Amino acid sequence: MQKISTFLWFDDQAEAAARFYTSVFADSRIVGTTHYTEAGPGAAGTVMTVTFELAGQSYTALNGGPIFPFTEAISLQVDCADQQEVDELWTKLTADGGEDGQCGWIKDRYGLSWQLVPRVLTELIADPDRAKASRVIAAMLQMQKIDVGKLLDAAEG
């Protein structure tokens, strides 16, 4: 078991969310499910938690009620190998009620924020040529979904 893992609080969609997320990412699976008992606070027999893995990373989803909704203060960042991966994940994660955001951020249908970051963006903004890095950042700030071609054009000046 992983020592530190991410815990996600849902209203009552923990199981649906876990199934959705494990369908989106390779090397993912549902590990286990617990149910509320007569002790509550949820209705006895309903799903309390779902433990799942995304690309080998452990998560737990809780059906905790509407007390604590997601905000952009926390997001899951995905290292994307290329534009194709960004495009595929953007389409899947925004489907059926998700929302486009700025600078590679999106919200899925459950309200969880994601950052889809092409690896080249990280490399370009870390470039020792600070003028190049600044041009790339300026270009990225104008985007919703990150466009690798436009980042490379900005890097060239």
Rank of each mutant, 00 (worst) to 15 (best):
A138K: 10
I4V: 14
D27L: 00
I4W: 10
R29L: 08
S28A: 06
F52K: 05
I125K: 01
D127I: 12
M143C: 04
T49M: 05
N63F: 06
A61Y: 03
E99K: 14
E72M: 15
T94H: 05
E15S: 14
L54M: 11
T60L: 13
A26R: 04
Y36M: 01
T46M: 06
T6R: 02
Q57S: 14
I30K: 03
T46E: 15
A95V: 04
L112Q: 10
A17C: 11
V24Y: 01
D79G: 06
T94C: 04
F10L: 07
A39Q: 15
Q2I: 06
G101Y: 06
Y110W: 08
F10V: 13
G65E: 00
A16V: 03
V148P: 04
F20E: 08
A16P: 00
C80R: 08
A81L: 04
D129P: 06
R119M: 06
V117F: 02
F25R: 00
L62K: 01
R119L: 05
L93E: 10
L112M: 12
Q13E: 14
Y36I: 07
T94E: 02
G157L: 01
A18N: 07
E99R: 13
V86D: 02
A73G: 15
E99W: 00
G40K: 04
R19W: 08
A61E: 02
Q57H: 12
T49W: 04
E38C: 01
G149K: 12
S5N: 12
D11Y: 08
M140S: 12
A43S: 13
L116H: 03
T46P: 00
R29N: 13
V136H: 11
Q77P: 01
E72Y: 05
Q83P: 01
E85V: 02
V120M: 00
S5E: 13
V47H: 04
E123H: 08
D79N: 12
Y59C: 03
A154H: 07
S58I: 07
A154M: 05
A14D: 07
L54P: 13
